[in-house]
Amino acid sequence: MPDNFESFIQQHRDEFEGPGPSPRVWAALEKDLTEQRQGRVVQLLRKNWFKAAVIAVLMINAAAIFYFTGHKRHQQQELSAISPDLQEARTYYTTRINAKLQLIDAYPANELGLDSTARQELQLRNDTYKALEKELKNNPGNERIRAALIRYYQLKLDLLDKILEELQDRHAVPGHTKKQYEVEI
């Protein structure tokens, strides 16, 4: 049997070595392969590009929120690690200053008589505060910087108190604000 098979192959060798498919067939096959290589993901993205864009934006927003909340928590931990007593003072003054800022914000903007720059300076975390906090991080043992930061808080409270007193003298205090202000006094 093997001899017959070998003789058959030798007799019909020319038929086995035929020219093969035409170049047109190969071109069509390559075209089909490249389309299949793009895959279902690319085809789905073509159809659902808006959904993919929304998902990408949501993922970027989630990453940014995660980064910034972690960064803010890290900064607060740094200050508490530098000086726990200063962290206590910061919490105390921050709550008082924010309460007074809410009282001031209860007044209509045209009655306040403050421009945008003055309102920005009234905020707790203005440029002066940021500079003091930066210096404290650079020189954690410096008592003068700690004292300056506490003095900054005290001056901010005094300024807000004076603004509130003047507003109370000049304008009628809004109903809910008047009660809060009287309780605070």
Rank of each mutant, 00 (worst) to 15 (best):
E111H: 14
R40H: 12
R40D: 12
D85P: 11
K137R: 10
N142F: 10
D32V: 11
M1H: 10
D161G: 02
D169Q: 10
R24G: 07
R146N: 06
L103R: 06
Q11C: 09
L122P: 00
Q180F: 09
A63C: 08
K134Y: 08
I65L: 13
T69W: 13
A64G: 05
A81P: 00
L79F: 03
R146G: 01
E143L: 04
K162M: 13
S116R: 15
F8L: 12
P140A: 09
T128A: 14
N126E: 00
A148N: 04
E17G: 04
E121G: 10
T117F: 13
S80I: 03
E135L: 04
S80Y: 03
L167P: 01
D3S: 14
E182Q: 15
A81V: 06
K162L: 14
N126Y: 00
I150E: 00
K134V: 04
L44Q: 11
Y107M: 00
L114C: 02
N48D: 01
A63G: 10
E17A: 12
L132C: 07
L45N: 11
T69V: 09
Q77R: 07
E6G: 02
P84T: 03
L45C: 14
D105W: 14
H71R: 06
F68E: 03
P140Q: 06
R170Y: 07
N61F: 13
Q154H: 12
R144F: 11
I60C: 11
V173Q: 02
H74I: 04
P174Q: 03
Q123C: 00
L164F: 05
E143N: 06
P23V: 03
F8W: 15
P19Q: 01
R96L: 02
V25A: 13
I9F: 15
P174M: 01
P174Y: 01
L44S: 09
N126T: 00
Q75P: 01
D14T: 12
A64P: 05
L157P: 02
Q36A: 14
L159G: 05
Q102W: 08
A131L: 12
Q120Y: 11
E135T: 02
A106E: 05
R37T: 05
Q11I: 13
Y93I: 08
G18H: 11
L167M: 15
K179T: 07
G39M: 01
L29T: 05
A27L: 14
K179I: 13
I145G: 01
A63I: 02
V54K: 07
